[in-house]
Every structure is written in C-alpha cells, then in structure tokens.
Computed example of a mutant assay.
Amino acid sequence: MPIAVPLIAQCLVMFALMGIGLALCRLGLVSDTGTKELGAILLNVVFPVVIIRSFWGHFTPENLSVLGITFIGATAALMVAMAVARLAFPHDGVAEFSAAFSNAGFIGIPLVEATLGSEAVFYITCFIAELNVLQWTYGKWRISGSTDSIKPASVLMSPMLIGFAIGVILFLFQVPIPEVIGDLMGSIAQLNSPLAMIVLGAYLAKSSPGALFGTARTWMTALVRLVAVPAATIAVLATIPAAGSVKLAIFIAAAAPTGSNVAVFCQQLDRDTQAASNAVCLSTLLSVATLPVMAGVAGLVL
C-alpha cells in the first residue's frame, strides 16, 4: 500500500483532533495555562517515554547497525534543511529557524507510529535528539544573532535528549523490561498522538485568520518548510543505503511542519513571536495536504 494512503487517513484524524483542541480553547474550556501545562506533560513525560520505549528491549545486532544508519540519515536531512533555509532566508533568523526545523515531536512521532508502526519510532530517535541540540544552539544563534543566548546546560537538560540517552543505555546494555513497567510506558505512549494534536489545535486558536493567511512572509516560510526542504531531503536520503522504511521514517520527521519551539525561543529572546506563531500554525494546516503528497513522492523514490 502506498505510504500516502495511510498518511492521508492519519492526517485527517489528526486534523480532527486539532479541531477539538481549537474548539475547546475558543469555548473557554481550556485556558492558556491549561494548554501550557498539557504541553509540559507532553514534552517532559510523554515524548521521552515514547523514545525510551522505542529503544528498550529492541536490541539486536541488526538494530545496532540501523541506529548508526539513522544517525547518518538524520544528520544529512538536518544539514540539508538548514542549508535550504539559510539560502531562502539569509537575513531573517526567525523565518530561517521556522523553515529549517520541523515539528518532529508533536507531529513526526505520531505520524511515523501510525503509518509505519510503533517500532519505526526507533528510526527517528537520532533525528529528534540532533534536532533538539541544533535548535538550542544553531537555532537560538540565528534568532538572536548572538551566541550569548546559548547555554550548554539547557541543551543537556532537554527532556528529549535525556530520554534518548536513557533509551540508548537500556538498549546497549540489553536491560530486561519488567512487565509492569512495559504496561505503564505503553499507557503513557497512547497519550502521544491525541494530546499532541489537541494542544496544537489550542495553539491554532490563538491566531487570527487575517494574520495567519495574509502575510507573504508566512506563506514563503511554509512553502520552504513543506515543499523545498522535503524535496531536498528526498534527494539526499536517496543516496543513503538503507531500508526504505528507515528512510521513510526519517523523511516524515523531516517533512513535518514548523516546530513550535520557534515561538518559544522568540518569546524568550524578544523577537517576532507573532510571525513565529503564524509560521507554526499555517504550516501545520497546510501539512495536511502537503505531507501525503510529498510522502507519496518519497515512497516512489526511496
């Protein structure tokens, strides 16, 4: 079955979940504080558990080899994304960050899990770890224009990076999974997709339609993130000798819409937060159409 078919179905489900989040926020049933707290649960608990679960108990010599391949593929995909974004927006750090870094956590993980299976999350763990490091270093530098904003402690304390490190240790040392722990992680992991999409829907509710759809800069940023970067990613992944499912998983994570961290960093660094939020929201809406199309092309090439 072509990858685009299940991806379309999953995008529609996610779009419906986003609609629920938007409605809850507009109706006043979920406050800004509630949205932030739900986002904190995702970032600090659910996502790290999903990553740890993808490693724990899956050690085989083949998977060890695959881990090395996914690191190479993730590095190549991220480098090409940053290069394309830099060429498109050489003097606009906010737009460059928005175009370069995808929402591999909120959208990439649920999509990979739904279309390729829960075991495929293992294929994008290196991508997520590298993405977090690059956002907190290169990304913050491009937004602020100064290296003063980069704090190594913040990078090392990223929940995603900690989850990745724990997962790798458990993977390499082949630590057995107690049944009760396995059941607990499975229950937490099931929160991933619905909670992430509901939170994204609540974010969408904060943007006015006029601001969201009326800016040429926002459309250009979305075009680069959703079309130019995925096209370049397909080209670079095609040169890497790996199984098609591995490359497709990395591609889906790389082709996801703009990551929400750009708005967080802009708020911290006193930059254009509204433009960053609009880029996240518009690219998320458009990705419902672009992701299946680009994934269909990737399925044929990779």
Rank of each mutant, 00 (worst) to 15 (best):
L156H: 09
L156M: 10
L156Y: 09
S158N: 12
M160S: 13
M160Y: 12
I162S: 03
I162W: 05
I162R: 04
G163A: 03
G163T: 01
G163R: 00
F164V: 05
F164N: 03
F164A: 03
A165P: 03
G167M: 04
G167I: 03
V168K: 03
V168E: 03
Q174E: 13
Q174Y: 12
V175W: 10
P176G: 05
I177F: 07
I177N: 04
I177E: 06
P178A: 10
P178I: 10
P178G: 09
V180S: 14
V180L: 14
V180W: 15
G182K: 07
M185V: 04
M185T: 06
I188M: 01
Q190I: 07
L191P: 00
N192Y: 02
S193T: 06
S193M: 08
L195H: 00
M197N: 04
M197F: 04
I198S: 00
L200Q: 03
L200I: 09
L200A: 05
L200N: 02
A202R: 06
Y203N: 12
L204W: 07
L204M: 12
A205Y: 07
A205E: 09
K206T: 12
K206Q: 13
S207P: 05
S208I: 11
G210I: 08
A211N: 15
F213P: 00
G214F: 03
T215N: 15
A216E: 14
A216Q: 12
R217M: 15
R217K: 14
W219H: 12
W219T: 05
T221M: 12
A222D: 02
L223D: 13
L223Q: 13
L223Y: 15
V224D: 06
V224R: 08
V224W: 08
R225S: 07
V229L: 10
V229T: 09
P230Q: 09
A231I: 11
T233D: 05
T233L: 05
I234N: 02
A235H: 09
L237E: 00
A238N: 11
P241W: 04
A242D: 03
A243Y: 11
A243E: 13
G244N: 11
L248R: 05
A249V: 02
A249R: 00
A249F: 01
I250G: 00
F251S: 02
F251T: 03
I252F: 01
I252T: 02
A253T: 06
A253G: 10
A256C: 08
P257L: 03
P257V: 04
T258P: 01
T258G: 06
T258S: 09
G259Q: 06
V262A: 08
V262R: 03
V264T: 14
V264S: 11
F265H: 06
F265G: 02
C266V: 12
C266A: 13
C266D: 12
L269M: 12
D270M: 15
D270K: 15
R271M: 15
